[in-house]
Each structure stands twice: as structure tokens, then as C-alpha cells.
Amino acid sequence: MISSLHRILIIARNTLTEAVRQKVLNVLLIFGLVLICSSVTVSQLATPDIDAAGLFSEQIKFVKDFGCGAIGLFGFFIALLSTALLIPQELDKRTIYTILAKPVRRAEFLLGKFVGVVLLLALSVALMSLAFAATLYWQESVGLAAVEANYAQMDLKHTPTAQSMHDHDAAQIIKQVRDPQLVEAVLLIFAKIVMTAAIGLLISTFATSWIFTIITTFMIYLIGHGESLARTFWLSHGAETTIWQSGLIGLIALLIPDMNSFTIVDEILAGNRVPWHDVLNLLCYANVYVIVLLAVSVVIFDYREI
């Protein structure tokens, strides 16, 4: 058991090293970082200076949406590329033969590869989150400076209402920027990316080309955003449709993961309170889903002729 875990970690480390030393993924990551930082410029486009508090909740929303959107998008690309190439590359270079000829179980090989990808994704998301935090901090200082400018003409000391308005505006900006719920958002985005990677891994255990893996994974990802519609329809109107329709919709509801529930991230970014309890529930769901996907992958890979 321990030696098994040891082997998984060795393969994971090797996978991570490979990914880090490969230029494609680094370039993707750099693009992600640049996009996150440039969200500041886009947010400036939004509205010329009008009303301090209103303006800044709008701009902060922009920076948050773009930042998290970029983390999600580039994390998705990295997950898709790295998992789709995982096994084809091994087969191509015949390294898979040398590893599987060693006292290594196939499940250990596959899990090691997956853990390596998860480590890579964690690293990428962590780096992009840092850039995101820096960008938000910058936006905060711009906002606070604008608030100061806005109240510069007023004699704050002698007008309690103005003083109170000033303090409140500044506090609002800080509150929006330093929202601890952003941790929830990043965790949810990460969970969604890891799920995508697990889907990609599953496809690649039986796919014969990496292009097939990428396209299929992408389709499942898209359909996953409509799974909730399919599920509600299937549960409520299943009997009213033809066998084919309800069969197809049922298949989607039964097999495709619900990606849409992760758009609760939008709620968090819009500043609405989402309790940790719900976030943890969703993270658990993603976790269990990943385990099921991995189990199926292991079964397929165990029987694969290499």
C-alpha cells in the first residue's frame, strides 16, 4: 500500500516535471497571467469617472469576473491539453512500456499521471490567483484614491454626514476587494478544472488520438452546463416524450456531470453571500465524481492492449 502510494507520487512528480519543462503549458500560463493583469485596463473602459461608489463596484466586478474567468479558462485549457496528451505521448515515445514493464500496476501509473496533472493545475491556479490578488489590490488603491479625491473639497471634520459617507465609501471598496468569499470562488473553479481533467483522462484511456480526446472532453464540458436542464426535464416530463428523446436526455442526466452548478461562482463574484456549507457540498460532489471517473478510467486502462 505504502509502496504503491510511493510509486504514484514518483510518477506524479515526473509528470509535473515534464509539464513544467514543456513550453506550451508555460506559454498558456503566461497568457493567463497577462490577461488577469490586463483586466484592470478593460475595467477602466467600462465607465468614465462618475460616481465613486457606483463606479467602483462596477469596476471591481469587472476585475473579479475577468480574473476568475481567466483562471477558469486557462486552467481549462491546461487541463484539457495536459490530459489529452498524457497517454498518447507515453505511447508515442514508448516510455509507457518501460514503466509498465517495471513492478508498477497500471492503476498506479494512471493515478500517478492524474495526480501529476492535478499538481500542475494547482500550481497554475495558485500562480494565477496571486496575479488576481495583485490586480485586485491595485484596483483597490485606485478606488481609494478616487474616493479621497471625491471628498477633497469637503470639510470632513465638521460635517459628520460627509465624513460618514466618505468612510462608508472607502469601507465598501475595501470590503468588495478583500472578500474572503473569493477563496470559495477559486476553490470551486479549481474543482471544476480538476473534473474536466478527470473527464479528459477517462476519454484518453480508450481514445486513439488526442484530437478525439480534446473534442469529446470539450463537448462533455459544454453539455455539462446544460445537464441541469436535461435532468429536470427528464425527472418531470420523462413519460411525455418518445423513448428516443427521453433515452437521450436521460443518458445526459445520468452520465454527464452537472457543470452548471459551479456557476454559483458568479454569485460569489457579484458579492452575494454563499455559505461555506454549500461550497463544501459542491466540492465534495466534484471530488466523488472525480473518484468515479478515475475508477472507470482504471478499469478501461487495466484491460487496454498496449
Binding site: I11, T17, K102, P103
Partner: peptide, 27 residues
């Protein structure tokens, strides 16, 4: 022990790292 036909191995590792990787894999 097995040497496959036309092996490439992990091009990003050096000779030492390659042997270290396979060695650890075998315990």
C-alpha cells in the same frame, strides 16, 4: 528488465534523472 524498440524516454530528463526515476519506481 525491458528495453523497448526505438525508445525515446523522457526527453526533458538527463541521464542521471532518468535512472533515478526508474530506480525509485522499482523501490
Amino acid at each position: 528488465g525491458f528495453l523497448p524498440e526505438n525508445p525515446y524516454f523522457y526527453a526533458f530528463l538527463n541521464g542521471d534523472e532518468t535512472l533515478r526515476f526508474y530506480g525509485k519506481l522499482c523501490g
